[in-house]
Design a protein around this nucleic acid. Structure first.
Lengths: 235, 235
DNA sequence: CCAAAAGTGTTAGGAGTACACCCATGA
DNA sequence: TCATGGGTGTACTCCTAACACTTTTGG
């Protein structure tokens, strides 16, 4: 039963209220060692089968804006902050969590792996490849289904928007951009056509900087001209 | 403060709880008298400025599946049942409702106007054209913004799926289908190209029935071959 | 027989796709 | 000088878009 002061014993009593509890979960995508990966955290021991992973998530507080809750939960669960996100879906099946009725607002997010690794708290969070998530039962609740759905949405969005900039560093070579697309779509693209298409959209801006990392011919570095989401058929 | 028996005094006390209240709202689209319209209901007197309309909506109950809540709220607020819907977005800005923090899961739905008019409870619900919704301040809260967003999503979905079947009767003429597209997109399409394109997708199935309503040459009636959502570039 | 909507093909231009060689650099 | 990835153009095919007349019916 609810207490006289619900704010004080928040986590203890919310499960006993007469309305569903609102949670927020996020599928954080990055590209790491040539694979599309997501960030997972350990499940609370005792609540689900141990050894299972879950998506970073937490409970929304009263009066808290969704964006604020997102940042708070992201930071406390993974150590990350200020990453690109979009709302994906809200899931409300009552049986999802054994503790009570949880309705979960799910986001997906994109982050460059360099930025990710610089602030990810590896004592709590891990990187798992999409292949592993979808082929083995390592995710608790229905989180593997959510990841599958998020991956599909990501693919669609990559086809007709400039969101790929959020999974890359600010400056990148066209070969790297193409590699990102090939990893996410799971097949190769023709180099000349890919460049032609992408450059013709006007979404990219050529810098006067060269990539000096490789021991081959240095590649030109590009950046996206618009930081905002822009819609253009790409592939 | 919460009572000893929150279930009993449900609507009175939920505003005082420590977590946000979850609501469900729906933008119901139909085509009526050559215009794209939505269903609105009156706002509760005293809660907002009177004379304002709002989207049909209600509070989600604990343990209630989203689909069940949707059907319940739809029926009690409008008299409708069993209509096509998709989840649109979840909005959680704390200031939306003056009574407290409401997080609202918004759906959009499509229904043929004949079916709509057969069961819509006109004492509580009304039809308003999209033009009126967007050009005048007749919607309470942020509901006009939601409608605008829903209309955009509808347009996108019409471009590459077979959802238009849900705003039409089971059998319809190609001219009627084209008219629906012209109303929603706000411009004319070439008759021959439109038919060619639509028929080439294989989404339509020609029946042996003719439309005998008009005083002109009777048109063939078609139906969609798949009831499920099917994805194909259309326009 | 007239008015009104149904129904039907062709062509020209643009976009997409397939394809192979030279270039610049560091080791 | 060699290995490696960077960078470029063309031809063919397919899809898109523009366009006008004949057919069928009810009144």
């Amino acid at each position: 039963m609810p207490t006289e002061n619900p704010q004080k014993e928040f986590t203890k009593n919310i499960w006993e209220l007469s309305i569903p509890v609102l949670a927020l979960d996020v599928v954080i995508f990055t590209i790491y060692k040539g694979e599309l990966c997501i960030v997972t955290i350990n499940t609370t021991p005792g609540v689900t089968n141990d050894h299972l992973m879950r998506l970073p998530g937490g409970i929304l507080r009263s009066g808290e804006w969704l964006d604020v809750a997102f940042d708070r939960i992201l930071l406390t669960k993974t150590g990350l902050s200020n990453i690109y996100k979009e709302q994906l879906i809200t899931i409300g099946t009552p049986e999802r969590d054994s503790r009570g009725h949880v309705v979960s607002i799910v986001y997906y997010a994109l982050v460059d792996s360099q930025i990710l690794l610089a602030s990810l708290d590896l004592t709590r969070a891990h990187l798992v490849s999409i292949g592993d998530v979808l082929s083995s039962d390592i995710m608790a609740y229905d989180h593997a289904d959510i990841v599958k759905y998020a991956r599909q949405r990501l693919e669609w969005k990559m086809e007709y928007t400039n969101i790929s900039q959020n999974i890359l560093p600010a400056r990148f070579t066209l070969s790297r951009l193409q590699e990102v697309y090939e990893i996410i779509f799971g097949h190769a693209f023709d180099k000349r056509n890919f460049r032609k298409k992408f450059l013709s959209t006007g979404m990219l801006h050529e810098t006067d900087e060269l990539d000096r990392e490789s021991s081959n011919r240095p590649a030109k570095l590009y950046e996206f001209s618009d930081k905002e989401l822009k819609i253009t058929q790409l592939l």
